[in-house]
Simulated scan of single mutants.
Amino acid sequence: MDFRKARARQPEIVRSVQKDARYTTELGEDLSDILRLTGPRNWIKYNQLCQLIAQLSYHGFASINNLQTLGEEYTGIIQVDGNFKQIPSRLLQLIAIILEFGGDALFLRVLQKLQKHVAEHDEIVPEAKQKLQKFIQSLRQSPSYIKALHKSLFYLNSSKYQLSKRTTSINYVLIRHWLQPEFSLYGYKILGVITFLQVTVSLAIGGWETWKEHKRQQLEALKQAGKSFLQRSESQQRAVVDAPQCILCLEPRQHCSLTPCGHLFCWNCILEWLEERDECPLCRESLKKSQVIQLRNYV
Rank of each mutant, 00 (worst) to 15 (best):
Ser164Phe: 03
Tyr161Ile: 05
Arg41Tyr: 06
Ser144Asn: 07
Asp242Gly: 05
Gln133Asn: 10
Leu99His: 07
Ala204Leu: 15
Ser228Lys: 09
Gln79Phe: 05
Arg4Ala: 14
Trp273Pro: 01
Gly262Lys: 02
Gly102Glu: 03
Leu67Ala: 06
Thr200Asp: 01
Pro143Thr: 04
Leu114Cys: 15
Tyr161Pro: 04
Cys256Lys: 02
Gly60Glu: 11
Phe154Gln: 06
Tyr155Cys: 08
Leu56Val: 09
Leu37Arg: 14
Ile98Ala: 06
Ala6Gln: 02
Tyr188Glu: 08
Gln294Asp: 09
Lys215Leu: 15
Ile205Ser: 10
Glu120Phe: 02
His214Ile: 05
Leu250Cys: 12
Gln198His: 12
Lys165Tyr: 09
Leu258Ser: 12
Gln68Met: 11
Leu67Ser: 10
Ser235Gly: 00
Ile64Lys: 05
Ile13Asn: 04
Arg7Phe: 00
Ala6Asp: 03
Gly206Lys: 08
Gln245Ala: 12
Gln217Asn: 15
His59Pro: 03
Thr38His: 01
Gln237Met: 15
Glu29Ala: 12
Thr69Arg: 05
Ser290Glu: 13
Asn171Arg: 09
Leu250Val: 12
Ile34Gly: 06
Tyr23Asp: 15
Lys289Asn: 07
Glu182Ala: 04
Ala119Val: 04
Pro252Phe: 07
Tyr186Glu: 12
Tyr188Ile: 09
Asp33Pro: 02
Leu111Ile: 08
Ala148Asp: 07
Gln217Met: 11
Gly226Phe: 12
Leu222Thr: 10
Glu285Lys: 15
Pro88Gln: 10
Arg36Gly: 14
Ala221Trp: 10
Val118Arg: 02
Thr25Pro: 03
Asn47Asp: 05
Gln254His: 07
Leu258Asn: 09
Ile87Thr: 13
Leu99Ala: 08
Leu67Trp: 13
Ser169Trp: 11
Ile270Val: 14
Lys223Gly: 00
Thr167Ala: 15
Lys131Ala: 12
Asp104Tyr: 03
Cys261Lys: 01
Gln10Lys: 04
Ser32Trp: 05
Tyr188Pro: 10
Arg253Gly: 14
Gly60Phe: 11
Pro260Lys: 03
Cys261Thr: 01
Lys151Trp: 00
Gln51Arg: 08
Leu149Ser: 04
Phe3Leu: 05
Gln294Ile: 06
Glu123Tyr: 07
Leu37Gln: 12
Gly71Phe: 08
Glu275Ile: 03
Val125Phe: 02
Gln86Tyr: 04
Ser57His: 10
Leu163Ile: 09
Ile64Glu: 06
Gly39Leu: 04
Ala8Glu: 10
Leu108Cys: 03
Gln245Cys: 09
Trp211Tyr: 13
Gln68Pro: 01
Ile175Val: 15
Phe61Ala: 11
Glu209Cys: 00
Val199Trp: 01
Leu191Ala: 15
Lys227Ser: 14
Val80Trp: 06
Lys227His: 11
Asp242Met: 14
Lys147Leu: 13
Ile146Gln: 09
Arg277Met: 06
Phe101Asn: 02
Gly206Ala: 11
Val199His: 02
Gln137Lys: 02
Pro244Trp: 06
Cys246His: 02
Trp273Met: 02
Gln162Ile: 00
Gly226Thr: 13
Gly206Gln: 10
Asp122Gln: 15
Pro40Ala: 12
Ala128Cys: 01
Arg238Lys: 14
Lys5Ala: 14
Pro252Gln: 13
Ala6Ser: 06
Phe3Glu: 01
Arg109Tyr: 11
Lys5His: 10
Asn297Thr: 14
Val173Glu: 03
Asn66His: 11
Phe101Ser: 04
Trp178His: 08
Ser159Leu: 01
His150Leu: 08
